[in-house]
Design a protein around this nucleic acid. Structure first.
Lengths: 205, 205
DNA sequence: AATAACATTGACCGAATCGGTCAACAGAAA
DNA sequence: TTTCTGTTGACCGATTCGGTCAATGTTATT
């Protein structure tokens, strides 16, 4: 990879990264075409190969970029000393939400990369990273104070319900809803709050 | 389309339909290739064009087939006189679950078709059909007895939570879990039962 | 057994698209 | 003017695309 890429104006770099991420999030490694990426980024195809050498080079750069970005964002929310189940969940979801709004293809790309089976890139991607979502979720849960939950509530089930619900919630938002991040978070919180009032013992409400 | 297709042995027909559904569920109309479909179905490419005339013919036949199939299955669960919120949900989800197990690509295909923007087929698919899931869910809700719910539970929110949770639940099942439909349903019911005990007034438990 | 009728194949077609190259160009710096 | 750097897009050979069709396999009829 050509290091000169990093000296490009930020706009141009982002245009290339976003376009490539979008196409790789939408298609297989094999079916994602460099022509389409160049056209979407508004640059010539030659530039892609000038900076990244090959399609594979671009893909692996993108994977590294996305992994670092997500890890960085996750860390911000991971080191709190919060023990309340719902506050932990809401923190991590707020984090995820902002990432989905700012970089809507980043998460999709990194998850798709985990399931990628094209022999050209399969062996070179870090397979431990694909389940980052689940592993961070589980570590969040580890420090949660479960005693606030009613006895007949399974923490694992509750976590899954919230996590899966959140995915569906995000997936079915319209594009314009994604522009107002704050309002979106409020709607999401209404759902979580309803659940919280249902599963917490009365004395914690 | 060549009507002789329907005189084929059921196995062969299903092999072709399933292979085509799988590829069209995985890729765009444009990026789905007839070579891949033929190879997956274990037939020669010539047969596809012999029976369906063209790629477009195959796609539109599949759309019609999937739409009719889903509608038929949905109807079976739609005309009960059940009024219990959770029994209605569980019925419709059991229906959806069995469809996902028997025809794992059918739902994905029909939803993808809704968002298809390839000019060749876009104008010919029935756009009112894509949101069949939501519309049937809403009609289920219409006859539900909401008085059993605690006052601070929003029926719309609860429905969304269950629906989105169910999607995530199904999506994260492993292939071998999908073989034992009954056990799968039991696990699903555990989740729903937990929710039911949380949102129903004590006198209905 | 011979033949007619049908089902199925896979090599093949021209066109399109693929990843990748490179001579040429634009513009700022020297 | 000359040099250097970033950028282009026409172009390459290879592959893949949707689609065709003569040839072959299979079954029913005579």
């Amino acid at each position: 990879m050509n290091e000169k890429f990093f000296t490009l104006p930020k706009e141009r770099r982002d245009a290339i990264i976003n376009a490539a991420m979008h196409i790789f999030a939408k298609y297989d490694y094999k079916k994602a075409s460099t022509d389409e990426i160049a056209s979407l980024a508004g640059i010539s195809k030659g530039l892609i190969f000038h900076y990244f050498g090959s399609k594979k080079g671009l893909y692996l750069f993108l994977y590294d970029y996305a992994a670092n970005f997500i890890m960085g964002e996750m860390r911000k929310f991971g080191d709190t000393s919060e023990t309340d189940f719902f506050k932990i969940i809401v923190n991590s979801q707020t984090c995820k939400l902002s990432m989905l709004a700012k970089h809507p293809d980043c998460m999709t790309f990194i998850i798709k990369a985990f399931y990628e089976d094209s022999p050209e890139v399969k062996s070179e991607i870090d397979t431990t990273f694909g389940d980052i979502e689940k592993s961070t979720a589980k570590s969040f849960l580890a420090r949660a104070d479960l005693s606030k939950l009613k006895e007949d509530v399974s923490p694992e089930k509750l976590l899954n319900i919230i996590l899966w619900f959140a995915e569906g919630f995000m997936r079915t938002r319209t594009p314009e809803e994604l522009t107002d991040l704050e309002k979106l978070n409020d709607i999401y919180l209404e759902y979580v709050e309803m659940l919280r009032r249902l599963v917490y013992k009365p004395e914690y409400l």
